[in-house]
């Protein structure tokens, strides 16, 4: 891509470019799938919610992997732990809030 780059760095550049392109195509497919499912009414009710949740979760993982470059490598562990801990806190808060409020609602 650039004359000043050595062949090794040039190869790394192509690899990075490929990563972004793969991520973009995957994210595009997953988003499209979610919208098409709703537009075409392919699945309904609770199944639809489950399928959409899975699609969103996969897409979020794709974004973290290809765009935010979070991986399982040793050097990424600190950040991975930070993210996983945040996911735990988020899950507790969201699930807890929904649980309590739905429970309360069903008693009113």
């Amino acid at each position: 891509m650039n004359k000043r780059l050595t062949p090794k760095i040039d190869a790394a550049c192509k690899r990075d470019l490929r990563q972004y392109t793969i991520g973009y195509v995957l994210a595009m497919i997953l988003s499209l799938a979610a919208f098409v499912i709703v537009w075409q009414g392919l699945v309904a009710g609770l199944t639809a919610l489950a399928v959409l949740s899975v699609l969103a979760t996969v897409q979020i993982v794709v974004h973290f992997h290809y765009f935010l470059h979070i991986g399982l490598e040793k050097s990424h562990r600190d950040d991975l732990y930070l993210i996983l801990f945040t996911v735990l806190i988020v899950a507790l808060m969201v699930a807890g809030t929904i649980w309590i409020l739905y429970d309360q609602h069903s008693r009113m």
Binding site: V38, A44, L49, L52, S53, A56, Q59, I60, H63, L68
Partner: peptide, 16 residues
Amino acid sequence: VVWVGIFTFVFLFGVV
């Protein structure tokens, strides 16, 4: 990433 959550859990869920 946050927008993926919004379009799924707010808009698509809302329509379904």
